[in-house]
Design a protein around this nucleic acid. Structure first.
Lengths: 114, 114
DNA sequence: CTCTTTGCTATTAAATTAATAGCAAAGAGT
DNA sequence: ACTCTTTGCTATTAATTTAATAGCAAAGAG
């Protein structure tokens, strides 16, 4: 089964496994947040549909991320395919304000660069 | 100068550079969220102090992350060393609820695994 | 002038991610 | 039953990132 950064065990940023650092270690892998985000905003879907939503993820990487997210219980499989668990949804909900901030960021960068 | 995922240009998850995907691409690099988090929660500090706070980051990686975060204007250098910009702080503030959720996550995992 | 601290760079190695092909299982349609 | 799709992957090889370690030049302290 997938190996993922486990709270309570040594992870990047915390030898003692501080949960927030473990979560950063998990979500700070390529595509991790994007995959979870797509599952939350687009609803449950198949592996291939998720691949499409992500526009350019390779099946090997998608498979790794899904295995990890499932092992970490942020994603599960239901009748309609892959879907976020309740905690997975809460995490994305918590992160949701980033959407508006990212747009602010984009504007700031543009005006600062001309 | 550092090359970072730029909103408006192709990034992981969005060929058209959707800002939220660009931000995920930036923050989804090893140590990126941890570094920003430490700067926000511990206050401005030197390169070496930041290295200590992160417990095990190598100078090469810290240097990369700092260069990217600075290029992206989420971190800057002031009289007291490295510090988050206003937007950097807002991003961490937005993410802050993850702390409580990560603790919940930790508990859930423990009870589910025994 | 020496000793520290700071902010890195260089080098080499290990791990992660990507790109591409393709296959076995399950279901749909005929 | 047979063919055609769709689905959920795995295998392989290559490219990119990250890590580990050493060390050095610049700035300040004494």
């Amino acid at each position: 089964m997938a190996n993922f950064p486990h709270p309570g065990k040594p992870v990047r940023g915390s030898e003692s496994g501080n949960p927030i650092m473990a979560l950063f270690d998990l979500l700070g892998r390529r595509w991790a947040m994007g995959v979870l985000w797509q599952l939350c905003s687009g609803g449950p879907c198949t592996f291939r549909e998720l691949q499409n939503r992500c526009e350019s993820i390779s099946p090997a990487v998608l498979n790794s991320r899904l295995s990890e997210l499932r092992a970490a219980r942020l994603v599960e499989r239901g009748g309609d395919g892959y879907q976020p668990t309740e905690l997975g949804e809460q995490i994305i909900a918590a992160i949701h304000p980033l959407k508006a901030l990212s747009e602010q960021w984009s504007k700031d960068l543009n005006s600062a660069e001309d």
